[in-house]
Amino acid sequence: MIWKIVLFLLIAFVSIAGITFPIVAKPEHWYEFPLIMGLGENAKIIFFHVPTAWLTVIAFLMSTVYSIKYLRNKDLVDDIKAHSAAQLGMVFCILATITGAVWAKFAWGSYWSWDPRQTSIFALLLIYGALFALRSAVEVEEKRAALSAVYSIIAFVTVPFFIFIMPRIMRGLHPGSADDTNAGTVVNFKMNGNMQLIFFLSLIGFTILYYWMWYVGYKSMLYKEKLNKQYH
């Protein structure tokens, strides 16, 4: 119970701080964010968009890890865990795509411009969609678990091509692209201390939220399976 309250307070603080703290040219107080050239007020999306994109990848990673575990142990609980993670990954992937597209409308002038990062999030959406299509096409439980585990591992090895290589070799508009002169690369984002603090608090808060949702999701799927087996 206590960590749910902590999570609530954390997310509430991050939401309020992320939206209301002003952006000024020379931050003097602890509640002021620095101005990043070329981003301005648009920079605030980092507190909400980046965590959803981060969770998309984390959910995919977890799904793959449980897929590998399933292939090793053939334990159907691992398959349910992987499936639950993939479902959440799809939700966060849609959120990241939509928040990114809305942001792009204001920052770049159009909702969609096939920036390398937009291409990669689109590919992730396709991968998740294909994974669910595959799951619904196989009837036998063990076969379904094995095939979707194999597919998510194959898809996982192609993700580095999208996330790490493509945005760096292709010309892009996204902050952190190879030819971005305003914001610089992702690693040395021009954030000051408090902006970084709220950014990382947001990452932590969203990650805990994801873990909680994943836990509830896989437990409920597990109970559904048990009830199905009892009454049929």
Binding site: L126, Y151, A155, F161, I165, M166
Partner: peptide
Amino acid sequence: TLYPVLSFPILLPLML
């Protein structure tokens, strides 16, 4: 119908 659906995301980095 499933074949292009499953192949496209895997072949996408290659195609691009």
